[in-house]
Design a protein around this nucleic acid. Structure first.
Lengths: 221, 221, 221, 221
DNA sequence: TATGAATGAGCATTCATTCAT
DNA sequence: CATGAATGAATGCTCATTCAT
């Protein structure tokens, strides 16, 4: 009702522009991307870009917002199952997301510009790592209170989980876009990482590791 | 003897150019850096840049070589002391190096361009992570053979060590140049990370953790 | 009665646009003024500008019309007093008008564009100098016929009057918007100019100069 | 000797650029003139313009310098003849210069931009009117001291001279590039203006006017 | 060998103008 | 009638690269 055809058109065009901006910025970098290229990719004229977003930097930051929202949404739900099962599922979900080529391109872009465009790193980290970590942290606390895990500092535990599971593959992926670790490598890191993590943080490590082995075996089948 | 005065002059000028290139590229990014700026910073004329390095991209990659050599050299030695002591010293040495502003700038630059300049990621990783890891890996193997540690896959253990100790601070540092973790934060991660690592990988975890606590206490003093 | 509410609205909007155009053109120059700026200043949309005035140049010339009418009206009346008194009053009135910042801005604008926009100079001069001069000329003729002044060519006499009284201050004002001659400088030129003028053109110079001195003295009080 | 071929080339090119700038700015106005146009007119590439003059405004002001120098030089000499003869010659020389189409274009340009480019009006006036007037002023003083003229304020007398002789024609010329007063009109203003001036300022007006009439008659022949 | 000088191509941004609503 | 939306064509300016000296 409230959305006239004009408004719809506008929103659709805005979306097209932001998608084009994401693509072009990701592949060419901030300085390397030209407004001409983005306009062409979006199928609009250059002045339209400026009418919608004012200038290049504003377009750049505007482009990050939907990405942030998408990420926020990507990790909203968590299941009510057994702790190890949840962590295992989470590890895969997270790894598969974080190693997606488009997500990696965006990460490279943001890291590359973090020293020049102020606030961009905060914006991104406050969403990617931070928000996600907040989810993990609260889950870990729940499980501690439920008696499944034990630790003093939940944030540190979460950091360990991420570091054990993803630090290696993601670092490699950032530096070598053409050599992003595949399923097998991911499995290696996830399995080993969870093993170390559960050995240290599970209240009953033996049982937890047994469950983990079952999950791994189940996956292979 | 083979180096005439001319050659020396040439080498000195080449060095000045590469240093200028490092500075300018690091602070402006690849596309954002102009040959004019680099020439000015090096105190030479622009054609000299082209005479020495052919074009912008070649200058860029050439600039990385001395950086690589410098890094290789930065972690050459290791002491013959007790395993925990060595790992502890290494952790601090590595953290302090990796979180240096200039090293971080360079890392951001390389990650930012990794998707566009082929080979740059390999070049850098083959030196930073890889070579360093190779050093750690061989040290860990030594210690396993000497009976201090236990594991099957030394590379995986090395990755765990790095992930536990540095993943958090370095990720934050990459995204937020103005919020690089300081001494206190580094200590938190190093101490906790080593604790988890030794709990899992030390042949005699209790003893190892006791040694670690002594080292930490000694540091505070 | 023929003016419906619609028409009134239209006229009001037209007036707003013309005022905005005057302001913007005067301060930015013809090329420097943008239709966007004028539309914003007038509080209307850009297409409305085009609907009302067709294009930029038409708007520009249209803007001059009310200015012309305003000027025409500014010097309509003349009093029936003594010749010297009238000339003295006229000199001050004219100087104060011609040195008004807005009138000067408009004059600079028109002179600046006179070489490019055909007809604009005629339009303006036919109003400013010409019409005004016509008024002076007819007054001078009256006074000659009444025996107060003597000359052959009334137009030349009028030109002398203007040249003696205002040429200096106005030339300075045109070139230096921030150094428009003030009351004191105007007085200097007016008093001296009238003295020269009356010496040459008055039938009884001594008497005329005496009257002038009285007026000057009266002004100082 | 000290000027290598390179330097000569550079100076020649600089001169070509400044001439092109004068032409283009004069005919299109400051905002209306584009660097592209100027580059084309000068037969150089656009970056060369920027290498030589930095930016548009700098080129604009640089362009005025040779014009100023030219003007300064245009009125350097004065003859040792009789006062009326000198003033008569000067009047014609000045009128012919000031009414030259190129000088008028430049004047329109400067007046048009005087409100926007700070200092430009001073720069120009300090040269055109001011310097010239300084020359007249000192000549008038000489003649007063020699007993030919009489006045208190030499500057005011100079202003009167200019106002009587040139105010009319130049104002018309500024507003109407296509109706610049010709020889006949100039003669009318000069003859009348000098008559009024000498009547008021000459120590022996009758003799001075007689001399003037002779000069005028001589001219007609 | 090293450089001052030059440039074609491209940059972010803005303009006068028009169309569909 | 009035406007939001759109655009081709500039605008001032900079870039990586080359050439003549």
């Amino acid at each position: 009702m409230a959305t006239t055809r004009r408004e719809q058109n506008r929103q659709a065009k805005e979306k097209r522009i932001l998608e084009a901006a994401l693509t072009v910025f990701s592949s060419a970098g901030y300085s390397g991307a030209s407004m001409d290229l983005i306009a062409d990719a979006a199928g609009v004229s250059k002045p339209t870009l400026y009418q919608y977003f004012g200038n290049k930097q504003a377009l750049f930051t505007a482009m990050l917002v939907p990405q942030r929202d998408f990420m926020l949404q990507a990790f909203a739900e968590s299941e009510g199952k057994d702790c190890v099962t949840v962590l295992y599922a989470f590890a895969w979900q997270y790894a598969d997301f974080v190693l997606r080529p488009d997500i990696l391109s965006l990460a490279r872009l943001i890291i590359g510009e973090a020293g020049r465009i102020p606030g961009i790193g905060e914006l991104y980290q406050s969403v990617g790592p931070d928000t996600l970590r907040a989810g993990i942290v609260s889950y870990l606390r729940e499980q501690r209170d439920a008696g499944a895990l034990r630790f003093d500092d939940a944030e540190l535990a979460a950091e360990d989980l991420w570091g054990l599971i993803l630090s290696g593959p993601r670092t490699q992926a950032l530096y070598r876009p053409d050599a992003v670790p595949g399923k097998r490598a991911r499995a290696k890191y996830i399995h080993n990482g969870l093993r170390v993590f559960l050995s240290f943080y599970a209240r009953t490590p033996k049982k937890a590791l047994a469950t983990l082995d079952e999950l791994i075996a189940a996956r292979k089948r």
